[in-house]
Design a binder for these strands. Sequence first.
RNA 1: GCCCCGGUAGUGUAGUGGCCUAUCAUACGGGCCUGUCGAGCCCGUGACUCGGGUCCAAAUCCCGGCCGGGGCGCCA
Length: 428
Amino acid sequence: MQVNVSGLKDIKEGEEVVLNGWLQEIRILKNISFIVLRDHTGTIQITSKPGLTTGYDVLSQMTRETVISVSGNLTRKTQSKSGVEVIAKSIEVLNASKSPLPLGIIDPVSADIETRLTNRFLDLRKPEVAMIFRIESELLWGMRQFFHDSDFVEVHTPKIVAAATEGGADLFPVQYFEKQAYLNQSPQLYKEMLISAGLNRVFEVGPAFRAEKHNTPRHLNEFTSIDIEMGFADHNDAMLMLQEGIKSGIRHLIAHRQEYIASLSQRIDVPEGDFPKITYRDCITKLESQGEIAKFGEDFTPEQLKIIGGEFQGFYFITEWPSSLRAFYTHPKPGDEKVSNSFDLQYREFEITSGAQRVHDPAMLEERLRSKNLNPEDFSFYLNAFRYGMPPHAGWGLGLERLSLIMLNLQNIREAILFPRDRTRITP
RNA sequence: GCCCCGGUAGUGUAGUGGCCUAUCAUACGGGCCUGUCGAGCCCGUGACUCGGGUCCAAAUCCCGGCCGGGGCGCCA
């Protein structure tokens, strides 16, 4: 019977099993040999002896990470520390591995992130590395379910676009036949058009591209953005949806994959209660009381965000950002138009999400475009959607890799994406 | 865009002008070992990012290229 390593717990003493996987370690002694076989569920010791095992004589030629198929009998009457092993009847090589490995899977010496990324297929064989993506998958699944259950439609908008989302530079140009096009930095404009289209609530999980030449542990040039937009809603509705979306993702992870959580060195809990909120102005007051120079209309430095983040446990919102700091589509706060109905979701010094109530009045939108030195004519495909009945609406965009980064306490965002696109890397 | 730091065996490192015929670990190859499990012990293979320059002498100093890490800006 073919089983995974994790399935061995249900196998009776002496029963014959077939295991497929990678040869993680091999130790050949004079009259007995041990192999540690690894599959995607775990590792198991395979014991073989001359005369008992077909293929014993070629064991000494087997290299680490060779793909093998083992058949044998499970026994728990073993001296192995794991308390269970398989006595091999036969060991077959399905595909040999070259040696030496460019990156050891279980070596005591750790490799640099660069070496790991250029050999990512080997790096990902480490269970703790693969676990990042298993957890990310579960978090995302839980969030997807939440949005579906909350009447959102999952959509897919173009990644090749004609105009800049927010008018700025920092886009990757692409040649689109005879036209100049760009990789989209955000699905923002399309999400909003779908509100005019009457879909009412949309969400999208997809790539976003930023041509910023940054080289930091928290930026990628291609990342995965979880975006939502909701009609007949404001920034407070959007914040609630964000809070509940994240909670649902974590709740799903905990409910369905306790074994993942157990393998981690840190705890993951569903945050209790509402995420606290602090206004931009209150942040400034707080910083000034600590001797920091923080001027209205300027973004916080990473150092300042550490100070603010130190006031909160886990997630918190910074709300009411100056209108001058936000994109043109951000709705001003009625009666206090220097600030906006906007928010960032933060975790310590990390910005996870940016969102807002959006401008829905076409005249105000044009004015806002002009105030940002953008030409409304360049946005006519977008502005048209506002001229024939656009509901008030709000939404946000969340960086999936940043969410993984903070949930798993990773030191570098490149850890949270399979094949990072950073300042210089376009392979693998 | 600005600034800082780095590149030595497959991997990770030591080394700051002569003592380097380059350290150590791990990996790899061979040997010993009836049960290992971070196996152990013995032997061995294996490296100074590239191109110029300074100097009697360069892994080490200088210039440039390439590659990488980080800080700021900007942002998810």
